[in-house]
Simulated scan of single mutants.
Amino acid sequence: MTITVKKNLVSEAKYALKCPNYMDAEYITIHNTANDASAANEISYMIGNTSSTSFHFAVDDKEVRQGIPTNRNAWHTGDGKNGTGNRKSIGVEICYSKSGGRKYKAAEKLAFKFVAQLLKERGWGIDRVRKHQDWNGKYCPHRILSEGRWEQVKAAIAAELERIGGKKASSPAKTGTKISGATYTVRNGDALSVIAQKTGVSMATLQSLNGIKNPNLIKVGQVLKLTGSSTSSTKPSNKRTSYALPSGIYKVTSPMRKGDDIRRIQNALASLYFYPDKGAKNNGIDGVYGPKTANAVKRFQSVNGLTADGIYGPKTKAKIEEKLK
Protein backbone atom coordinates (compact mmCIF):
# COMPACT_ATOMS: atom_id res chain seq x y z
CA MET A 1 0.00 0.00 0.00
CA THR A 2 1.36 3.40 -1.02
CA ILE A 3 2.04 5.74 1.88
CA THR A 4 0.12 8.98 1.49
CA VAL A 5 2.11 12.15 2.09
CA LYS A 6 0.34 15.15 3.60
CA LYS A 7 1.78 18.36 2.20
CA ASN A 8 2.25 21.62 4.06
CA LEU A 9 4.76 23.21 1.72
CA VAL A 10 6.75 26.31 2.52
CA SER A 11 5.51 29.39 0.69
CA GLU A 12 7.43 30.48 -2.40
CA ALA A 13 8.09 33.76 -0.61
CA LYS A 14 10.43 31.78 1.67
CA TYR A 15 12.25 29.84 -1.03
CA ALA A 16 15.24 32.15 -0.81
CA LEU A 17 15.60 31.28 2.88
CA LYS A 18 14.57 27.64 3.03
CA CYS A 19 15.16 26.06 -0.40
CA PRO A 20 16.80 28.50 -2.85
CA ASN A 21 18.16 26.02 -5.38
CA TYR A 22 16.69 23.61 -7.89
CA MET A 23 17.64 20.04 -6.96
CA ASP A 24 17.93 16.82 -8.92
CA ALA A 25 18.31 14.58 -5.89
CA GLU A 26 20.79 11.72 -5.73
CA TYR A 27 20.49 10.61 -2.11
CA ILE A 28 18.13 10.29 0.86
CA THR A 29 19.45 11.42 4.24
CA ILE A 30 17.98 10.14 7.51
CA HIS A 31 17.82 12.27 10.65
CA ASN A 32 16.54 11.88 14.22
CA THR A 33 14.74 14.92 15.61
CA ALA A 34 15.99 16.52 18.82
CA ASN A 35 12.54 16.65 20.39
CA ASP A 36 9.27 14.74 20.75
CA ALA A 37 7.07 16.77 18.38
CA SER A 38 4.70 15.21 15.85
CA ALA A 39 5.37 15.33 12.11
CA ALA A 40 2.71 18.01 11.65
CA ASN A 41 4.31 20.19 14.32
CA GLU A 42 7.83 19.61 12.99
CA ILE A 43 6.86 20.76 9.50
CA SER A 44 4.71 23.64 10.72
CA TYR A 45 7.53 24.99 12.88
CA MET A 46 10.15 24.52 10.15
CA ILE A 47 8.26 26.37 7.43
CA GLY A 48 7.08 29.11 9.80
CA ASN A 49 10.29 30.18 11.51
CA THR A 50 13.00 32.54 10.28
CA SER A 51 15.87 30.04 10.40
CA SER A 52 17.28 28.71 7.14
CA THR A 53 17.30 25.15 8.52
CA SER A 54 14.94 23.01 6.47
CA PHE A 55 14.14 19.42 5.51
CA HIS A 56 11.78 17.74 3.09
CA PHE A 57 9.82 15.22 5.18
CA ALA A 58 8.95 14.44 8.80
CA VAL A 59 7.62 11.02 9.79
CA ASP A 60 5.85 10.19 13.04
CA ASP A 61 3.94 7.14 14.25
CA LYS A 62 0.88 7.92 12.13
CA GLU A 63 1.81 9.93 9.04
CA VAL A 64 4.34 11.50 6.70
CA ARG A 65 4.36 15.28 6.29
CA GLN A 66 6.20 17.26 3.60
CA GLY A 67 7.42 20.84 3.92
CA ILE A 68 9.91 21.29 1.05
CA PRO A 69 9.36 20.18 -2.58
CA THR A 70 11.71 17.36 -3.57
CA ASN A 71 12.93 19.38 -6.57
CA ARG A 72 14.28 22.08 -4.22
CA ASN A 73 17.30 21.74 -1.97
CA ALA A 74 17.02 21.95 1.80
CA TRP A 75 19.55 23.01 4.44
CA HIS A 76 19.66 19.88 6.58
CA THR A 77 23.13 18.28 6.46
CA GLY A 78 25.49 21.05 7.52
CA ASP A 79 28.00 20.52 4.70
CA GLY A 80 27.81 24.02 3.27
CA LYS A 81 26.00 25.86 0.50
CA ASN A 82 27.46 23.60 -2.16
CA GLY A 83 27.73 20.42 -0.11
CA THR A 84 26.36 17.24 -1.67
CA GLY A 85 24.16 16.55 1.35
CA ASN A 86 22.51 19.97 1.24
CA ARG A 87 22.33 20.22 -2.52
CA LYS A 88 21.70 16.63 -3.61
CA SER A 89 19.81 14.80 -0.85
CA ILE A 90 16.24 14.52 0.38
CA GLY A 91 16.00 15.03 4.15
CA VAL A 92 13.79 12.68 6.19
CA GLU A 93 13.32 13.41 9.90
CA ILE A 94 12.14 10.62 12.22
CA CYS A 95 9.99 12.10 14.99
CA TYR A 96 9.79 11.40 18.74
CA SER A 97 13.54 10.73 18.74
CA LYS A 98 14.38 12.49 21.99
CA SER A 99 12.59 10.15 24.37
CA GLY A 100 12.14 7.08 22.20
CA GLY A 101 9.56 4.55 23.29
CA ARG A 102 6.48 3.22 21.54
CA LYS A 103 5.80 6.28 19.40
CA TYR A 104 9.38 6.49 18.21
CA LYS A 105 9.50 2.82 17.27
CA ALA A 106 6.30 3.23 15.26
CA ALA A 107 7.67 6.37 13.60
CA GLU A 108 10.89 4.57 12.70
CA LYS A 109 8.97 1.66 11.21
CA LEU A 110 6.87 4.00 9.07
CA ALA A 111 9.99 5.94 8.05
CA PHE A 112 11.67 2.76 6.80
CA LYS A 113 8.64 1.99 4.63
CA PHE A 114 8.51 5.56 3.36
CA VAL A 115 12.21 5.69 2.49
CA ALA A 116 11.84 2.39 0.63
CA GLN A 117 8.93 3.92 -1.26
CA LEU A 118 11.03 6.95 -2.21
CA LEU A 119 13.81 4.65 -3.41
CA LYS A 120 11.48 2.58 -5.54
CA GLU A 121 9.85 5.67 -7.07
CA ARG A 122 13.28 6.86 -8.21
CA GLY A 123 14.64 3.50 -9.30
CA TRP A 124 17.30 3.67 -6.59
CA GLY A 125 18.82 1.01 -4.37
CA ILE A 126 19.77 1.11 -0.70
CA ASP A 127 23.16 2.54 -1.73
CA ARG A 128 21.46 5.95 -2.03
CA VAL A 129 20.59 6.12 1.69
CA ARG A 130 22.82 8.18 3.98
CA LYS A 131 22.86 9.27 7.60
CA HIS A 132 23.36 12.95 8.52
CA GLN A 133 26.72 12.04 10.04
CA ASP A 134 28.05 10.99 6.62
CA TRP A 135 27.92 14.56 5.31
CA ASN A 136 29.40 16.69 8.10
CA GLY A 137 30.23 14.38 10.99
CA LYS A 138 27.31 15.43 13.22
CA TYR A 139 26.15 12.70 15.59
CA CYS A 140 22.84 12.21 13.80
CA PRO A 141 20.60 10.24 13.60
CA HIS A 142 21.57 10.30 17.28
CA ARG A 143 19.22 7.64 18.62
CA ILE A 144 20.09 5.15 15.90
CA LEU A 145 23.82 5.81 16.30
CA SER A 146 23.76 5.60 20.10
CA GLU A 147 22.08 2.20 19.80
CA GLY A 148 24.62 1.04 17.21
CA ARG A 149 21.92 0.24 14.69
CA TRP A 150 22.80 2.05 11.46
CA GLU A 151 23.62 -1.08 9.50
CA GLN A 152 20.48 -2.76 10.83
CA VAL A 153 18.41 0.27 9.83
CA LYS A 154 19.74 0.03 6.30
CA ALA A 155 19.03 -3.70 6.28
CA ALA A 156 15.43 -3.05 7.33
CA ILE A 157 14.96 -0.47 4.57
CA ALA A 158 16.56 -2.83 2.05
CA ALA A 159 14.22 -5.62 3.12
CA GLU A 160 11.20 -3.36 2.69
CA LEU A 161 12.49 -2.19 -0.68
CA GLU A 162 12.82 -5.78 -1.82
CA ARG A 163 9.33 -6.58 -0.52
CA ILE A 164 7.76 -3.83 -2.64
CA GLY A 165 9.74 -4.79 -5.74
CA GLY A 166 12.45 -2.12 -5.78
CA LYS A 167 16.06 -2.37 -6.89
CA LYS A 168 18.72 -3.75 -4.59
CA ALA A 169 21.32 -1.22 -5.71
CA SER A 170 21.76 1.65 -8.13
CA SER A 171 24.20 1.49 -10.98
CA PRO A 172 27.75 2.41 -9.86
CA ALA A 173 28.03 4.64 -12.93
CA LYS A 174 25.15 6.78 -11.67
CA THR A 175 26.69 7.27 -8.25
CA GLY A 176 30.06 8.29 -9.68
CA THR A 177 31.87 5.37 -8.08
CA LYS A 178 35.43 4.77 -9.24
CA ILE A 179 36.78 1.33 -8.44
CA SER A 180 40.22 0.26 -9.58
CA GLY A 181 42.66 -2.49 -8.70
CA ALA A 182 42.49 -4.32 -5.39
CA THR A 183 41.61 -1.36 -3.13
CA TYR A 184 38.77 1.07 -2.56
CA THR A 185 39.13 4.53 -1.02
CA VAL A 186 36.26 5.49 1.27
CA ARG A 187 34.37 8.52 -0.03
CA ASN A 188 32.21 11.07 1.74
CA GLY A 189 28.83 9.43 2.39
CA ASP A 190 30.06 5.84 2.09
CA ALA A 191 28.94 3.10 4.47
CA LEU A 192 30.44 -0.36 4.53
CA SER A 193 27.22 -1.90 3.21
CA VAL A 194 27.29 0.57 0.28
CA ILE A 195 30.92 -0.25 -0.47
CA ALA A 196 30.05 -3.95 -0.45
CA GLN A 197 27.35 -3.33 -3.04
CA LYS A 198 29.61 -1.13 -5.18
CA THR A 199 32.56 -3.52 -5.19
CA GLY A 200 30.82 -6.88 -5.09
CA VAL A 201 32.85 -7.81 -1.98
CA SER A 202 30.73 -8.90 0.99
CA MET A 203 30.71 -6.90 4.23
CA ALA A 204 32.11 -9.89 6.11
CA THR A 205 35.03 -10.13 3.67
CA LEU A 206 35.68 -6.38 3.81
CA GLN A 207 35.77 -6.54 7.62
CA SER A 208 38.03 -9.58 7.61
CA LEU A 209 40.46 -8.16 5.02
CA ASN A 210 40.73 -4.78 6.73
CA GLY A 211 40.48 -5.60 10.43
CA ILE A 212 37.21 -3.71 10.80
CA LYS A 213 35.44 -4.63 14.02
CA ASN A 214 32.71 -1.99 13.85
CA PRO A 215 31.40 -1.23 10.32
CA ASN A 216 30.08 2.14 11.52
CA LEU A 217 33.62 3.44 12.13
CA ILE A 218 35.12 3.60 8.63
CA LYS A 219 36.60 6.99 7.71
CA VAL A 220 36.70 9.12 4.57
CA GLY A 221 40.03 8.58 2.84
CA GLN A 222 40.55 5.14 4.39
CA VAL A 223 41.93 2.68 1.82
CA LEU A 224 40.24 -0.72 2.00
CA LYS A 225 41.67 -3.93 0.59
CA LEU A 226 39.31 -5.81 -1.71
CA THR A 227 41.47 -8.90 -2.10
CA GLY A 228 44.23 -10.63 -0.21
CA SER A 229 44.61 -12.20 3.23
CA SER A 230 42.69 -11.31 6.36
CA THR A 231 44.40 -9.10 8.92
CA SER A 232 45.55 -10.75 12.11
CA SER A 233 43.38 -8.47 14.23
CA THR A 234 40.10 -9.73 12.85
CA LYS A 235 38.62 -13.13 13.54
CA PRO A 236 37.67 -15.13 10.44
CA SER A 237 33.99 -14.79 9.75
CA ASN A 238 33.39 -18.54 10.01
CA LYS A 239 34.13 -18.33 13.73
CA ARG A 240 31.00 -16.26 14.28
CA THR A 241 28.97 -19.49 14.28
CA SER A 242 30.77 -20.90 17.33
CA TYR A 243 28.59 -19.35 20.02
CA ALA A 244 26.53 -22.55 20.60
CA LEU A 245 23.43 -20.52 21.32
CA PRO A 246 21.28 -21.93 24.11
CA SER A 247 17.78 -23.27 23.69
CA GLY A 248 14.93 -22.24 25.94
CA ILE A 249 13.37 -18.90 26.79
CA TYR A 250 15.26 -16.01 28.39
CA LYS A 251 13.74 -12.75 29.61
CA VAL A 252 14.22 -10.14 32.31
CA THR A 253 13.30 -11.61 35.70
CA SER A 254 13.76 -10.63 39.32
CA PRO A 255 16.33 -11.67 40.35
CA MET A 256 17.92 -11.37 36.92
CA ARG A 257 19.09 -14.57 35.27
CA LYS A 258 22.87 -15.04 34.96
CA GLY A 259 25.29 -17.48 33.34
CA ASP A 260 27.46 -18.50 30.41
CA ASP A 261 24.40 -19.21 28.25
CA ILE A 262 23.54 -15.51 28.41
CA ARG A 263 27.15 -14.56 27.62
CA ARG A 264 26.83 -16.59 24.43
CA ILE A 265 23.64 -14.70 23.52
CA GLN A 266 25.34 -11.37 24.24
CA ASN A 267 28.44 -12.29 22.23
CA ALA A 268 26.31 -13.34 19.26
CA LEU A 269 24.37 -10.07 19.37
CA ALA A 270 27.63 -8.12 19.68
CA SER A 271 28.97 -9.94 16.62
CA LEU A 272 25.93 -8.70 14.71
CA TYR A 273 26.39 -5.14 16.15
CA PHE A 274 23.25 -5.18 18.26
CA TYR A 275 25.08 -5.24 21.57
CA PRO A 276 27.60 -2.38 21.53
CA ASP A 277 28.50 -0.93 24.89
CA LYS A 278 31.53 1.21 24.12
CA GLY A 279 33.76 1.85 27.10
CA ALA A 280 32.20 -0.88 29.23
CA LYS A 281 34.39 -3.68 30.49
CA ASN A 282 34.46 -6.62 28.06
CA ASN A 283 32.17 -4.66 25.74
CA GLY A 284 29.35 -5.05 28.28
CA ILE A 285 29.36 -8.87 28.08
CA ASP A 286 28.39 -9.58 31.68
CA GLY A 287 26.29 -12.76 31.48
CA VAL A 288 23.24 -11.02 32.94
CA TYR A 289 19.89 -11.04 31.14
CA GLY A 290 18.87 -7.55 32.20
CA PRO A 291 17.23 -4.56 30.48
CA LYS A 292 20.36 -3.91 28.37
CA THR A 293 20.35 -7.41 26.91
CA ALA A 294 16.58 -7.42 26.46
CA ASN A 295 16.84 -4.12 24.58
CA ALA A 296 19.49 -5.57 22.26
CA VAL A 297 17.27 -8.59 21.60
CA LYS A 298 14.31 -6.31 20.96
CA ARG A 299 16.28 -4.22 18.45
CA PHE A 300 17.43 -7.37 16.66
CA GLN A 301 13.85 -8.64 16.54
CA SER A 302 12.47 -5.34 15.26
CA VAL A 303 14.59 -5.33 12.09
CA ASN A 304 14.28 -9.04 11.40
CA GLY A 305 10.54 -9.50 11.20
CA LEU A 306 10.06 -10.92 14.70
CA THR A 307 7.80 -9.82 17.54
CA ALA A 308 9.90 -7.15 19.28
CA ASP A 309 9.32 -8.22 22.89
CA GLY A 310 12.93 -8.52 24.11
CA ILE A 311 12.42 -12.20 24.95
CA TYR A 312 14.98 -14.66 23.60
CA GLY A 313 13.24 -17.82 22.42
CA PRO A 314 13.35 -20.44 19.64
CA LYS A 315 12.44 -18.03 16.80
CA THR A 316 14.96 -15.43 17.91
CA LYS A 317 17.64 -18.11 18.33
CA ALA A 318 17.00 -19.41 14.82
CA LYS A 319 17.13 -15.93 13.30
CA ILE A 320 20.39 -15.05 15.09
CA GLU A 321 21.95 -18.30 13.86
CA GLU A 322 20.77 -17.49 10.34
CA LYS A 323 22.40 -14.04 10.45
CA LEU A 324 25.65 -15.45 11.83
CA LYS A 325 26.15 -17.77 8.85
Rank of each mutant, 00 (worst) to 15 (best):
L324W: 05
P314W: 04
Y45G: 10
Q133D: 12
S51N: 14
M23S: 03
A111W: 00
M23N: 03
H56R: 10
A116Y: 01
P69M: 13
I320Q: 00
L306P: 14
W150M: 13
T70W: 05
K120A: 10
G259C: 06
T205N: 11
S230N: 15
N41P: 06
E321A: 05
K98R: 13
Q197W: 09
V201A: 06
D36F: 02
C140H: 09
G211C: 10
R143S: 04
I30H: 00
H31N: 14
S171E: 14
S247Y: 10
I30T: 02
I311S: 05
M203F: 08
K325C: 12
Y15E: 02
V252P: 02
K278A: 10
N188Q: 12
L110S: 02
G181K: 09
D286I: 01
L206E: 00
S44I: 05
R130Q: 10
G166A: 08
P255T: 13
A182E: 12
A296F: 01
K178S: 12
G248L: 06
A25M: 07
N21E: 14
V220L: 07
N49L: 09
V153C: 08
L9A: 05
A40V: 11
E151S: 13
T29K: 01
S54A: 14
T33F: 03
M1D: 14
C19H: 03
R72P: 00
Y275G: 00
A37L: 15
R87L: 07
R87W: 00
S38C: 07
A58F: 02
P215G: 07
N267I: 03
H56G: 07
G259Y: 02
K154S: 09
M23F: 06
N86T: 08
I28G: 00
A37T: 08
F114M: 06
S11K: 10
T29D: 07
D260W: 05
N304E: 04
E42F: 01
A37C: 14
I212K: 04
G221L: 08
R65T: 04
G211F: 08
T29G: 01
E12D: 12
T53E: 15
G200H: 06
N304V: 03
K113S: 13
F55K: 05
K298N: 10
G189P: 00
D61T: 06
